[in-house]
Nucleic acid binder design. Structure first.
Lengths: 155, 155
DNA sequence: TTATTACCAAGTAAATTAGTAGGAAATGTT
DNA sequence: AACATTTCCTACTAATTTACTTGGTAATAA
């Protein structure tokens, strides 16, 4: 698992798309404006996202992007994997007596950790993030306070 | 939260240190040999780890590194933060009507996700990883073992 | 027909990663 | 005291990745 700024850009853009794409497609120009990401970089990111069918593009005036499927069916891991090019970390394949030997122990430990993080991010969907945001928004709008529900954490 | 190969190197090295440092300090040369990380790069990483007091160096012959504190008191997040230089992602500080406005919503959502991942990695200690590895080792010892050695690969 | 949008490819500047080189400062051993 | 070993420190560099730029082509609604 890899978690870089590139992945964040992608998650942020997808979140923007999910939030603003409820009625009609969202253009990359809008997302670029909203999130301060260059248009061309977004194009690169969306090329990857489109390849994994996480988004669907519509050309021409009034066009833009839709989510490729329901926000509840798109996990954060999906998004990050689409743009971040899964990097194999254990380079023991070619190294002397790595398999079986002790020196690979740390590698397999890291692999376990890595897939645990992956599982974690797999369980969080775009839909989850949106609902979490709606709670926040509602709280703010109603000027309520003390509703301390499970997901939201004060910072 | 950031999770790069640099962080992995650090976690792997710390794991190596924790595993091999039970009786006496471990030299960076050993870790370099074990993990296939260049000595100088390890020196850089350990400079950061030392600054956060996650390791303690002993100079001279027979010297090397100890863990700065108990393996149970060192979280994966500690390690990654030490070497990875926490990057503030939300760049809204200077951007027009970002605070309060809708355009910051995705940012705060990402922040929540980010700190959730951070919490997750905070709850996993080096000690946890080691214990997990010991279980694996026991399994393996009973089996022993397919030597999966493929000869040449460019170093 | 035209403007608008996705889509595509090549190149580049900036940042980060990973490694080199050449030391100096401690410290145990001889 | 001399020496080898090791951390510690600085500066440089190659490779890679990130983020952006430029200059298009293709589809499509108006």
């Amino acid at each position: 698992m890899r978690l870089s700024t590139k992945g964040r850009y992608a998650v942020t853009a997808m979140l923007d798309l999910a939030l603003n794409g409820v009625d009609g497609p969202v253009t990359l120009a809008e997302i670029s404006e909203n999130q301060g990401i260059s248009l061309s970089y977004l194009e690169q990111l969306f090329a990857s996202l489109r390849a994994k069918e996480l988004v669907r593009g519509v050309r021409g005036p009034g066009g833009g992007y839709y989510l490729g499927r329901s926000a509840d069916d798109i996990s954060i891991a999906n998004i990050i994997c689409a743009v971040d090019e899964w990097v194999e970390f254990t380079r023991c394949g070619g190294r002397k007596n790595c398999s079986g030997g002790e020196r690979c122990l740390t590698h397999s430990l890291w692999d376990d950790l890595s897939s645990e993080i992956f599982d974690f991010l797999t369980k969080i969907s775009l839909g989850d993030l949106i609902r979490r945001g709606e709670h926040k928004k509602a709280d703010k709008a109603a000027h309520l306070s003390v509703v301390n529900d499970e997901g939201s954490r004060a910072a």
